[in-house]
Amino acid sequence: MSEIAAEETTAKELAGSRVWRGLKEVLPAIALSAAILILWEAFIRIFDVATFVLPAPSAIVVSLIKNRASLAVATQATAFEIFFGFVLAAIVGVMVALLIVRFERFGRALYPLIVLFQNVPKVALAPIFILWFGFELTPKILLIVVIAFFPVTIDMLAGLQSVEPSFVSLMRSVGASKNKIMLRVRIPHSLPHLMAGLKVAITFSVIGAIVGEFAGANRGLGYVIQFASTQLDTPLIFAALLVVSALGLAFYYVVEFAERLLVPWAPKYDPIQLNG
């Protein structure tokens, strides 16, 4: 009886320590954010900075609450663009990588062009896409694709190459064709790399959506930001930026969650503490 009780307490203590450990991990970030916000608020109040130049955090929150309905509608529109743009960018990125390795000569021709294209400033493409495809969804999604497919392709290519050559020999030794090796070994091997590429791509997708909306739109958070700037409604600009960031963060963690689900064997690492 007493033994069971003792075990229970240890279990409780363990759970408690896990919560505590989780808390300890996020505590520094919360503390730093709070410090920055307090300093910011104090700075605005002490020096009496005009709201249209730089609003205090409290003013941003007020604007956020006041405009919550229109911000919600804008968020929905932008989230839609990000989602479809990202999915399409992922598909295009993977397809391009597969085509490059499947048709070697074609790959040799295409790869430098892709790298060249990556160095074209995509922001400059936005007006052209608007010119070609109008103000609706198409130019935004297209812009996201051209911005976000590159890290997917590059990481997928690295992943396809990450198979040990001796394992390829092994597959060849049982008469496996190139396609079979690709399907059974190379593609699954590339998944951890692909997920890393997708994590970069999702953040690029958020940028792509906002840039697309800047260039010409009648809805979305980018449109709200631009509209607010013409009205000198700086608190609303910041409120919209806050929502964009939160949206990007949410999308990022969805991809990371998908990674844990789909690629449980991917190496887990702490991005901050150096290994070894």
Binding site: S166, F167, S169, P188, V263, W265
Partner: peptide, 12 residues
């Protein structure tokens, strides 16, 4: 049958 220095098992 072939065996190499690295076991090269599929991690998944």
């Amino acid at each position: 049958g072939l065996v190499f220095q690295d076991a090269t098992l599929l991690p998944w």
